[in-house]
Design a binder for these strands. Sequence first.
DNA 1: TATCCGTGGAT
DNA 2: TATCCAAGGAT
Length: 367
Amino acid sequence: MIDMWDDEKIHAFQKTLLKWYDEAGRSTLPWRADHSPYRVWVSEIMLQQTQVSTVIPYFNRFMQAFPTVDDLAKAPEADLLKAWEGLGYYSRVRNMQKAAQQIVNDFDGAWPNTMQTLEALKGVGPYTAAAIASIAFNEPVAAIDGNAFRVFARLFEIDADIAQPATRKLFFELGNQIIDQERPGDFNQAIMDLGSSYMSAKNSDPAHSPVREFDASYQNGTTDLYPVKSKAKKAKPVHYAAMVIKNDDTYLWEKRPEIGLLANFWTVPLFNIDDFVNDRDVNWSETEIQNALEKQLFEQYGVKVDLTKRNLAPITHIYTHQKWFVSVFEGTVVQDQVPKQGEWKTMTDLNRDPQPKIQEKIWKKLS
DNA sequence: TATCCGTGGAT
DNA sequence: TATCCAAGGAT
């Protein structure tokens, strides 16, 4: 199992780590300017599965637009999604608003101030709760994110698979044993800074790490073996026809379902055409696919359409579990009529809605 | 427990 | 190009 350090070594590690953090940590990150729970929380949610350099401009704009938890609680959802547009994992911002309303309504505006009570907030799991509790409220709990998994796995040569949810408990208990009791928030952030520099996933430099004396994997030359992580499944290919249908100066536009991928986002109609696609590339009879698409537009949307252009070279867009191949079709309505499903909107109107990246790619593909 | 949920960057 | 990684959480 784990070759646990004695108290003396733990204290030496804390001292070495925090000394380095004070001298070389990323002190200029905007969410480190102060440790108010609101700022810490917003930054932690944005940073989930998202790189620091990506988050910085979003964070600054978000704090301008929604300076307090009250502002966030009462903001229109469209404004929130527009502020989040391009960040991905959009349920994060929807859950954030629900959590803001929990704080305002259920807790009378007072922040929960322990890891355990913070986990009651929507979208706040074990990692984020520990991060807020330690950074904003000085509670000595380990925040186990991807960095902490990697750093601890290397320091102690831990062979448990970090892709297994059950492994989180092991790392959490280890972290709680070595966390600095006086400066838990700085300790957690120091581990993250270490994990994004000397002990990063790629281009690590353990020989110059401030904690190399404590790094068993470096001492034994096994850095590349840690962390142990099982491989993710490959994304499943899915084929769509994007229907860009014009009616004078408007386009056919519809809202996606409330749950699932890109929930509630507006896009042009996207038809699944896996049935028309052979193996790995478009391979269909021209008249067959064209007739099928026009038929579906009439039956599902109630509009008669003349398809005029097609782009057989598909756009590709990769999600975590799906790889989309999107062929863009253009057409015009034969006669003006109100659609059974979706709406006609001008380009000006639809640019006001937040759009997923795939929709941007579709617009760019138009001839 | 396994799967789902976006996007951008690095190699 | 394919793959992995990036301050995870909900179901």
